[in-house]
Simulated assay, not measured.
Amino acid sequence: MPPTDATTGTGISPRPPSDPVGTGTEDTLDMRLPDELIALLTADEPIPAVQPRNTLADGDLLDAVAGWGAALTPAGVFRLVPVRLQRDLPLITRWMNDPAVAAFWDLAGPEAVTAAHLRAQLDGDGRSVPCLGVLDDAPISYFEIYRADLDPLARHYPARPHDTGVHLLIGGVADRGRGLGTTLLRAVADLVLDHRPSCTRVIAEPDLRNTPSLSAFMTAGFRFCAELDLPDKRAALMIRDRALRHLL
């Protein structure tokens, strides 16, 4: 359960019953197939079979993060781009070895350390999706979008179904301390609420010692709810509610 840091884890609804149809012989004899269906039945290519939805496919537990699209922010156009290990490992490793990041993420070291952290998510069931935060086509941050209700965090607070958590670090030193964390957190929270209709709350648990992170979350519309004693830190439970979104 890596710390959130602004400075730097269903069933298919059954189809409704069909409208009743007559069972009399006369109705059956008079029934005519639509022209569109006749064309399909007489075409050379077979009708494609409907593929069952795999609810544990990568990203499905989070409503396909890769397809969420862009958000327009005061700093530019922002997108979440799911991590590809071969492409992104050197960059994320460099960020994790920045002392300001390592103090809260505890992932400093060779690429193998970062790779193991990323691979645990990439090879999982999709309950946590690691992403690059890309601003105007430049990767400047790292995010983890995760199902807080399915995470060990849920043992430490009154979780609700589909609670969605956010971890964040800002990679470049020059990008810190100028309000960019607030801008990106607001954009990501809005993306979550826009694309996860079942989610009523966005959750975060930054380290209590990380005062710039706490400030960024509160400025981005999160409210402080409680202090949490987690296995690796004492954290602030921060929540952004869908119900209060119009007031922010």
Rank of each mutant, 00 (worst) to 15 (best):
M1P: 06
T4W: 05
T4K: 08
I12A: 07
P16Y: 01
E26L: 14
D30C: 13
M31E: 12
I38H: 06
L40H: 15
L41K: 12
T42I: 10
D44Y: 04
I47Q: 04
I47C: 03
Q51K: 05
R53Q: 10
T55F: 05
A57F: 01
D60I: 06
D60G: 00
L61R: 02
L62A: 02
W68H: 02
G69K: 01
A70M: 15
L72G: 08
P74W: 03
A75L: 14
V81T: 14
P82G: 09
L91K: 12
T93Q: 07
T93W: 12
N97I: 02
N97P: 07
N97A: 04
V101S: 03
A102Q: 03
A103E: 13
L107W: 12
L107Y: 05
L107I: 06
E111T: 15
A112Q: 05
A112E: 05
V113D: 05
V113G: 06
A115S: 15
R119D: 12
R119H: 05
L122V: 06
G133I: 03
D137K: 01
P139C: 08
I140V: 07
I145P: 14
R147K: 01
D149N: 09
L150N: 01
H167R: 04
H167L: 03
G171D: 14
G171Q: 15
V173C: 00
D175P: 04
D175Y: 08
R178P: 00
R178C: 11
G181T: 12
T183Y: 04
R186S: 09
A187I: 14
D190G: 15
D190P: 03
V202I: 02
L208D: 07
R209P: 01
P212S: 10
S213A: 03
S215C: 06
A216V: 04
M218R: 11
A220C: 08
A220D: 12
F222G: 10
C225S: 07
A226C: 00
L228D: 14
A235S: 09
A236I: 04
M238W: 03
D241C: 08
D241L: 08
A243Y: 00
L247A: 12
L248W: 10
L248I: 07
